[in-house]
């Protein structure tokens, strides 16, 4: 049996809102030690989502035996809208379930809402992601990165990320012209999350589809910082930390064959 209780329904709502425009169907893998993990690839096979909600994400978590919950995220999203952000949210599934029970509890009133979501058999490929040695790692405020991704998408289909030891530069070239934003590393002692950290072994210059970056930055609601790991001619990793665990996006770059 699975029973996972979130202190705030908003956490799961934000997570699902961050991924449901990229993937529609996915398997939630549940286990006592790892909590709930998800790996899903978008239809174009350009973007991969790796979610890890450790047991620490939950106020209470038990999972007596490993189970897989096949979920339609659009349907799950509809149910999650029914609860309030501050409600307790509990996911309950029996062994070999054909449905997932979702329970909202208002913390102040005696109100309990229960929903049952039909589960699906989802046949999905699982990709093996080796630990990559990265050429660069950037940690910056997620709001700043989100603004760049959203603004530059109006100018170009692609966003170039150029990292040197001194700076990270985001650049877009479109029909109307071009633009760039440069960030230099800095440490904000009063607001550490406002700091910009650049670790570089080798400079990189990579180009990504603006559409995918726009999907990725939907997760900015989950964490005030984002870590971007880049390697020449390889997929980039965009990571948002959860209270315990992470939401990662692997995005394949664009380049000449």
């Amino acid at each position: 049996m699975l029973e996972g209780k979130f202190d705030q329904a908003s956490l799961l709502k934000k997570i699902i809102d961050s991924i449901r425009d990229s993937v529609k169907l996915c398997n939630f893998n549940c286990s006592q030690n790892d909590g709930i993990t998800v790996q899903a690839i978008d239809d174009s096979r350009v973007l991969l989502i790796a979610l890890k909600m450790d047991p620490g994400c939950f106020q209470e978590f038990r999972c007596d035996r490993d189970m897989v919950l096949g979920l339609d995220l659009e349907s799950l999203g509809k149910i999650l809208k029914q609860g309030n952000n501050e409600d307790y949210l509990t996911l309950i599934a029996e062994d070999n379930p054909d449905s997932l029970l979702i329970v909202f509890e208002d913390k102040k009133k005696d109100r309990i809402s229960e929903f049952s979501l039909k589960l699906m058999d989802i046949d999905s490929d699982v990709l093996t992601i080796d630990d990559m040695d990265n050429d660069c790692s950037i940690t910056m405020p997620s709001a700043d990165f989100s603004k760049i991704a959203r603004d530059f998408k109006t100018m170009s289909e692609s966003l170039q990320i150029i990292v040197t030891k001194e700076s990270v530069k985001f650049k877009a070239e479109g029909q109307i012209g071009s633009g760039s934003v440069i960030f230099k590393p800095h440490t904000d002692l009063d607001n550490p999350d406002e700091s910009i950290k650049i670790d570089m072994n080798q400079p990189v210059n990579l180009t990504f589809g603006a559409k995918y970056l726009n999907d990725i930055v939907k997760a900015s609601t989950l964490s005030s910082t984002i870590t971007i790991k880049l390697t020449d001619k390889a997929p980039a990793l965009f990571e948002f930390k959860l209270p315990s665990g992470y939401l990662r996006y692997y995005l394949a770059p664009k380049f000449e064959d």
């Binding site: 973007l47 093996t128 692609s158 589809g209 380049f255 000449e256």
Partner: peptide
Amino acid sequence: MSQQTLSRFFTVR
């Protein structure tokens, strides 16, 4: 510039 897919970099299990 052409968009690469992840299959090119990661192996399917």
